[in-house]
């Protein structure tokens, strides 16, 4: 890690709990601020190293980056409230953005389910740019896929899927309030705000995933300028258990992260036009 980047890790009080904020801060004035919305369940683990790689890369290019472990997740695990839900995730990210010093344009990045959170945050920060990374379009579908991925992981490991026990996904409990909130979530057809929108989605025979492509078309039809980055990752939702070891050495993930970093830094420098 270059010396001109500083790691800051701190707990930030939020409502009736606290979140763990992980920042990479460049020396000097940042050219932009990037906040990555937190994921849930296996996505917390599977994309963690890619996010670490992305934020360190961006910070080395002069972009201030913040990630967080939201209430009810990771080191902000806390049983005192009905967390996490999409709404509490939104509150947590809002609190982090409020707490960050203003520095250049603001990018809000979502990964899979947290793209729903990122899109919702544009109600408060209409000028913020959005980067939606492998966006989940629909919370109900996300849960369905997650349950099947969980089942496959148990089959792979040749063990019981724990169906007799309480509902869970990949070793995390699935609380009723979490499930209810996720099932209500959808990426909106009508995006609020006026910042840029970039969709980074994995290769599907050289094209976007069909569902994502349809949504991008719809947004464009509504006069929304949407940039598309087709990443070479061949990751599929059923690959639970992959991409944890030596993520940095996976050429596909590396290429995806570099592509996303390029988008974020080019825009920070103001060279991307609509």
């Amino acid at each position: 890690m270059p010396d001109q980047v500083r790691d800051v890790v701190r707990w930030l009080p939020v409502a009736d709990g606290s979140v763990l904020v992980l920042e990479q801060v460049p020396v000097g004035s940042p050219s932009a601020t990037v906040v990555i919305c937190p994921s849930l369940f296996w996505d917390q683990i599977s994309n963690q190293r890619a996010e670490v790689m992305l934020t360190r890369l961006l910070a080395a290019r002069g972009v201030r980056c913040a990630r967080l472990q939201a209430r009810g997740c990771g080191n902000a695990l806390d049983g005192s409230a009905e967390v996490p839900t999409l709404e509490t995730l939104e509150q947590d990210v809002s609190a982090v953005i409020d707490d960050l010093p203003v520095g250049g344009p603001l990018w809000i990045v979502g990964f899979r389910l947290s793209c729903l959170v990122a899109a919702a945050l544009r109600n408060r920060w209409p000028d913020a740019h959005l980067l939606l990374w492998e966006p989940s379009l629909d919370g109900r579908e996300y849960l369905r896929q997650s349950r099947r991925a969980d089942l496959f992981a148990h089959l792979r490991a040749d063990r019981s899927d724990g169906q007799d026990g309480p509902p869970e996904l990949h070793g995390d409990p699935l609380w009723s309030w979490t499930a209810t909130s996720i099932e209500r979530g959808q990426l909106p057809v009508e995006l609020t705000g006026h910042g840029r929108v970039t969709v980074a989605s994995s290769d599907h025979d050289g094209m976007l995933r069909p569902g994502v492509a349809a949504l991008v078309e719809e947004w464009r039809r509504r006069a929304r300028d949407v940039e598309v980055l087709v990443t070479p990752t061949r990751r599929k939702w059923w690959y639970v258990g992959d991409q944890v070891h030596a993520t940095e050495e996976n050429p596909d993930i590396r290429a995806a992260v570099l592509g996303i970093a390029d988008v974020l830094t080019r825009t920070a420098a103001g060279s991307v036009t609509g």
């Binding site: 049983g79 009905e82 349950r147 309480p166 509902p167 869970e168 409990p173 699935l174 609380w175 009723s176 309030w177 979490t178 499930a179 209810t180 099932e183 209500r184």
Partner: peptide, 10 residues
């Protein structure tokens, strides 16, 4: 909604 989710709070 929540049909296969934990109902008991932590």
């Amino acid at each position: 909604p929540g049909s296969n989710a934990l109902v008991v709070p932590p």
